[in-house]
């Protein structure tokens, strides 16, 4: 029985390891994140700081099309705060009774208003580069949060002999080394509403946490439910095992 279990697990792991082995690229600057592990969960104060970083810095170039302002409620913002965040932006609505489109302040039910009207507008404002949408950024890169952290803190002088084209920047975490994004964060690039000291490292961690929440908003619920489900299954399986022993007693 033990041999069987071990070999099953080994076979499963081998099969499972195959996709995991497929990555490569620059070494990641691995961090400890509050949501990692079975009992891991988001630190809401950190997510609110991360939202502030996105709001003050990233959102000038990067859209987050999959998120709506109402989603910010799960960060602990009040309804009035969320209304205020939304109202900072104008959206086109309509047609009205006169058959005309009109501008109105965004509402909590609206998705985050993108900084550019379309891809072409984004490219022309960014030296030809397209700032990618950040809704799923953490899930869409090998290395996930560690990669995004490494990228945000990876702006250094290029190694000797490495040529960085005009209008680009060297980043050791980025594939190929040359990135169109200027270094977005530095010490005191934001002033945190909660008084936390805004070091570059702190800002990077906060915004990565926020981006992870944006990509996996269900994580807290998922972990909490998962612990219950696995606990239930362990009890159920133990009962099946006891019953199996009892039913098979006369065969053995």
């Amino acid at each position: 029985m033990r041999k069987f279990l071990l070999s099953t697990i080994a076979a499963g792991l081998l099969a499972a390891a195959t996709p995991a082995l497929a990555h490569e690229g620059p070494a990641l600057d691995k961090q400890v994140w509050s949501w990692q592990g079975v009992f891991g969960h988001y630190d809401k104060a950190q997510l609110r700081r991360g939202w502030q970083v996105y709001h003050d810095i990233c959102s000038n170039c990067h859209s987050m099309n999959l998120l709506a302002y109402r989603n910010l409620a799960s960060l602990g913002f009040t309804a009035d705060q969320i209304k205020a965040f939304a109202a900072e932006k104008q959206v086109t609505d309509g047609p009205n009774d006169q058959g005309e489109m009109y501008q109105r302040p965004a509402r909590p039910s609206d998705h985050f208003v993108p900084p550019f009207a379309n891809e072409q507008a984004a490219r022309v404002a960014n030296n030809g580069a397209l700032p990618p949408d950040l809704s799923l950024m953490v899930k869409a890169r090998h290395g996930g949060p560690d990669y995004v952290y490494s990228l945000l803190t990876g702006f250094t002088d290029p190694p000797a002999g490495h040529v960085v084209p005009d209008g680009m920047y060297y980043n050791r975490a980025f594939n190929g080394g040359n990135i169109g994004m200027p270094p977005p964060i530095s010490d005191d690039a934001v002033t945190y509403a909660d008084g936390t000291k805004a070091t570059k490292d702190q800002i990077a961690k906060d915004v990565v946490s926020f981006l992870n929440w944006a990509a996996e908003p269900e994580l807290d619920q998922r972990h909490a439910l998962g612990v219950k489900v696995i606990g239930f299954l362990i009890v159920l399986t133990a009962m099946f095992y006891a019953l199996k022993r009892k039913i098979w007693a006369d065969v053995h």
Binding site: L5, L233, L236, T237, F240, Y241, L243, K244, I247, W248
Partner: peptide
């Protein structure tokens, strides 16, 4: 059936 159920649990 019970042996399969035990396997299902695991």
């Amino acid at each position: 059936t019970i042996k399969d159920l035990y396997g299902v649990g695991l």
